[in-house]
Simulated scan of single mutants.
Amino acid sequence: MNDQAADIGGAGLTPQELAALREDLEEQRRFRLDQLREFARSRAGSRHGRHGGRRTAGLAEVDAKLRASARMVLADVEAALERMDRGRYGVCHLCARPIPLHHLEVVPQARYCARCQQVGEAGR
């Protein structure tokens, strides 16, 4: 069996495709961890008066939402890396069909194929 025919995790991804997607996920993981560390430093600095006094409630709310979003994306990225390690990456959680490579290249932490994602969003 050549590399092009290798079926990794049931998603039909070649080892090269999987390696490129893993690299992208690892990069996103590093970015989110850095982002969360920066939020923590910024927050600590503002508590100690480094940013010129009291923060407004609106700014604090925006910061809280940004931190929550970063934590959520980080959790999705780490879950995708875990699926890779377990050989279940690239398979839709709902229909169990392979998620197309072009979709994974845009959203490498995707849990659902585009069709199931649309159905889920329409039902909300």
Rank of each mutant, 00 (worst) to 15 (best):
E105P: 03
S42I: 06
A57W: 06
A64E: 15
A110G: 04
V91G: 00
M84I: 14
S46F: 01
G45T: 05
K65E: 14
Q109G: 11
L18I: 05
R86I: 03
E105A: 08
K65F: 12
D85H: 09
L81R: 06
P100N: 01
L66S: 14
H103P: 00
A79G: 13
A75H: 12
L104Q: 02
L18T: 08
R30H: 09
R86S: 07
R37N: 15
R55M: 11
L21K: 00
A114M: 11
L13P: 07
R50I: 01
I8V: 15
A80F: 03
K65G: 11
R83K: 13
Y89D: 04
R37P: 01
H103I: 14
T14C: 10
L25T: 02
D34V: 05
F31C: 05
A40H: 12
R55D: 14
L25N: 03
F31N: 07
A57C: 03
D63T: 10
V106P: 04
R97M: 07
A60D: 10
E78D: 15
P98V: 00
R43F: 11
V106Y: 06
L101T: 05
A5N: 13
Q4K: 11
Y89T: 04
P100Y: 05
L33E: 13
E23K: 07
L33Q: 15
H103L: 13
A122R: 12
P108T: 02
A64H: 14
